[in-house]
Design a protein around this nucleic acid. Sequence first.
DNA 1: TATAGTGTTATCGG
DNA 2: ACCGATAACACTAT
Length: 267
Amino acid sequence: MPELPEVENARTVIARAGLHRRIVDVDDHDTWVCRPHPPGQIRAALVDRELTVAHRRGKSMWCETSEDGPVLGIHLGMSGKIVVADADGTEVDGGDYWERGRAAGDYRYARFALTFADGGRLMLVDPRRLGRIRLDPPIEELGPDATAITPEQFRAMLGRGTAPVKARLLDQHAVAGIGNLLADDILWRAKVHPGRPVDELTTDDVSALLRATRYAIRTSVRDGGVHTLGSLKLRGPDGRCPRDGSPSEHGVYGGRTTWFCPVDQRR
DNA sequence: TATAGTGTTATCGG
DNA sequence: ACCGATAACACTAT
């Protein structure tokens, strides 16, 4: 269930195991995941080419292809994973990132796959089909990547409007790469209430939010996931604030369940 | 058995 | 036109 760190891991899986291999077949029959492309369109565009570079911005990935081919956009959605397997189905890379209880070689949720000349495959495995594969994705519509955002860009991103700050942090057009758990961690760390309208943030709030964003993104990427974030302790009916031990509260902001400390994070 | 969910986007309303 | 809220997508975990 990817946040930015897991997407970066997936990008490295592609970079390690999916580049410079001739594509001989493409399974693009899932027209929901591959929308708006009709079946066969992505296949026709990729067969006999290779992936040459794997990029990431926020939670979106894209690969350049050989011979001035199209760009292949990959988004993992909420349940997608990249798995590279050998011709016999043995996982070569990405296979350690998997839900419990799956039998080895069970690719029933592969929604898209590239087959290489040696029979190996690169798959988007995605039970919920919330992931997305498309040609020439509109990367330029994304905000600056959360790992590289400058203070000026950060201030501009929060800038105008009446949106709850949590909703703005989740807006991939404003800043790319902050998901629900990272947003809660950033707000908790900065001691800002998730429902505060962005145009009511003080200069100190903005500074604290920038520092918290830097910290949360850096440490979660370093740890390979968001599982080490302190704010996770806020979640659930028995959730408590790791700083002061007070019971957490929750609500919906920006359409997502939000857990916060009512003592630290006042309106 | 019922409900919520680490994401995005089309659509609707103000 | 801009901004924000909501539903939908399909399956799993609790």
